[in-house]
Design a protein around this nucleic acid. Structure first.
Length: 523
RNA sequence: AGGGGCGUAGCUCAGUGGUAGAGCAGCGGCCUUUUAAGCCGAAGGUCGUGGGUUCGAUCCCCACCGCCCCUACCA
């Protein structure tokens, strides 16, 4: 098989056979290296030219050629290993005629191994004086342009391997992603949490409100959903006495795609027995501050135009947030009583819609028939959410949109639930878990009755059975890892923090699914 | 899904109703401390795909494919 550009592909293949004709293996099996390119740069950064002369340092190092400056009978090149550039200097009189012939058959992109000693050039750059050189793997395809790299977003996603070779920023982003996940594991393990893995294929939809992907098991002749949330399984584990559990894994939601939604996304979920949502907010602040310090080196960091500051996490009830961000042009700020009164939220939504219509803004809930609690949620999303740039916990969510959360002791229309917003994105969602099996069954039945593509079609009776064995008072939370990585790497689309984001098949065509309603406290 | 934008050499990009250009990469030559190496020379294109208008389309029009942005939906 050959790939574009075919002329260069063929030229390089010819060079590879010429190299074999010189007696070198085309694809040798290993290379005994003494240092990575990065290690050389770090270990000998302060070694002077004189010191290197007086006390020679021999190295064996491998890497990909990313720059080549031949000068006839000598040449400079840069190789990259472990993400670091290292200059090498190859001279005919140092490597001998055979090896120099090999060198002249090398191209940008080839992976080579060299051995020699370190020296400093006229410009004082730490450089390997090559004594031996070998080809480790031939690049049959050329790299993108050395100055601009690979800029086309589509190509960067489809051919992430090339993006990673030529765009340092890409490499850095995914290194940070790995570091973030590592830190999260340490954070929870240090606090006595156990990491678990629960099913990705679910016979019954649950734990969130979203349209699922459906798959099929042949032997059991059984349709299965790719999970939309691990929540119900994790709480079963707390019933089973695993008092502190966490899972970092993928969820799948069959919905649209935009800058902050990827169809297959990574979520941290954690649960702790004998705790409530207030403790979770404190714990979340601790987690996020620690991550910012470790990843960005500071509790303040840049996200686009904004300076995000983790020094303070604001806390507002959902009703307070609506009042705080109510647009002055939409009439007097609603009172706490208005927001709490039966029919109040609907009246406010109508009032807002008059304002929205006369200002060309999208109205709230044009066609949907909503409850007061749902109207509160809509009002919040419309009026307040876009303003939440600095970290803000919004808490005390309406029960109507929180089917898995425990009600407040003094007001059953509200639940002990919060979401954390930063840079206009929802980053986390946590609550005191509903552990009353009768109340839970009632809410499940209401969901099933309500119907809709995003809601469960049947009650998860085994989950109710699990609750009937006794779930301790428990607090649980989900954190969107992709969005967290976006935040801490100053990335503005989720596809920049997912190695292989979902793209349409080249030349393919998709069919159209129907639309759906929403509601729920999906973590 | 709706609205807007984009698609030209391997890469980054110019460009025009008379079938196309630069830089880098590649090819040939010169060059033993360069670093976006340099100098000389030659080459490289179904201008996303398919229709239409036109004497003639890469350019204008329509459809389709893909990507990006905005809006609507899950986090």
């Amino acid at each position: 098989m050959e790939f574009e550009p075919v002329d260069q592909f063929q030229q390089r293949r010819k060079k590879l056979s010429d190299i074999e004709a010189l007696g070198y293996a085309a694809y040798p099996r290993k290379f005994a290296w003494s240092h990575t390119a990065r290690q050389i740069g770090e270990l000998f950064a302060n070694r002077t030219a004189e010191e290197l002369k007086a006390e020679p340092v021999n190295v064996q190092v491998a890497g990909r050629i990313i720059a080549l400056r031949p000068h006839g009978k000598a040449a400079f090149a840069h190789i990259v290993g472990d993400g670091a550039r290292l200059q090498i200097y190859v001279r005919l009189d140092a490597v001998g005629e055979e090896a120099y012939k090999l060198f002249q058959l090398l191209d940008l992109g080839d992976i080579i191994g060299v051995s020699g000693h370190l020296f400093r050039t006229k410009t004082n750059e730490l450089t390997v004086w090559v004594e031996k050189i070998e080809l480790l793997s031939k690049a049959l395809l050329p790299l993108p342009e050395k100055w601009h790299g690979l800029a086309d977003r589509e190509q960067r996603f489809r051919r992430r391997y090339v993006d990673l070779i030529v765009n340092e920023r890409t490499r850095e982003t995914f290194l940070r992603r790995a570091q973030i996940i590592r830190e999260i594991r340490q954070f929870f393990e240090a606090r006595g949490y156990m990491e678990v893995e629960t099913p990705m294929m679910h016979p019954i939809l649950g734990g969130a409100t979203a349209r699922p992907f459906v798959t099929h098991h042949n032997t059991f002749k059984m349709d299965l959903y790719l999970r939309i949330a691990p929540e119900l399984y994790l709480k079963r584990l707390v019933v089973g006495g695993l008092d502190r559990v966490f899972e970092i894994n993928r969820n799948f939601r069959n919905e649209g795609v935009d800058a902050i939604h990827e169809r297959e996304f990574t979520m941290l979920e954690f649960y702790q027995a004998y705790s409530d949502y207030l403790e979770l907010m404190d714990l979340t602040e601790e987690l996020f501050r620690g991550l910012a310090e470790k990843i960005c080196g500071s509790m303040r960091f840049k996200f686009g135009e904004n300076d995000i500051d983790f020094a303070r996490f604001e806390r507002l009830t959902m009703r307070e947030a609506i009042r705080k961000y109510w647009p002055s042009a939409a009439g007097t700020v609603p009172s706490a009583d208005e927001l709490a009164a039966a029919g109040g939220p609907r009246a406010l939504a109508e009032r807002y819609n008059i304002f929205a219509n006369s200002n060309g803004l999208p109205p709230i809930a044009k066609v949907k028939e909503l409850s007061d609690g749902e109207f509160i949620g809509e009002l919040f999303e419309t009026v307040a959410e876009p303003h939440l740039v600095q970290p803000t916990f919004i808490y005390d969510f309406p029960t109507a949109i929180s089917p898995l959360s425990k009600q407040k002791a003094d007001d059953p229309s509200l639940t002990e639930r919060f979401e954390l917003f930063i840079a206009g994105m929802e980053l986390a969602n946590g609550f005191s878990e509903l552990n009353d099996p009768f109340e839970q069954e009632k809410r499940f039945r209401e969901q099933v009755e309500k119907g809709g593509l995003e809601l469960p079609k049947e009650v998860d009776t085994d989950y109710i059975r699990a609750l009937s064995h006794g779930l301790p008072p428990t607090a649980g939370e989900g954190v969107g890892i992709d969005r967290l990585v976006m935040l801490l790497t100053d990335s503005h689309t989720i596809r920049d923090v997912v190695l292989f984001p979902l793209l349409r098949a080249e030349g393919g065509e998709a069919e159209e699914p129907p639309a759906a309603e929403k509601s729920g406290d999906a973590k």
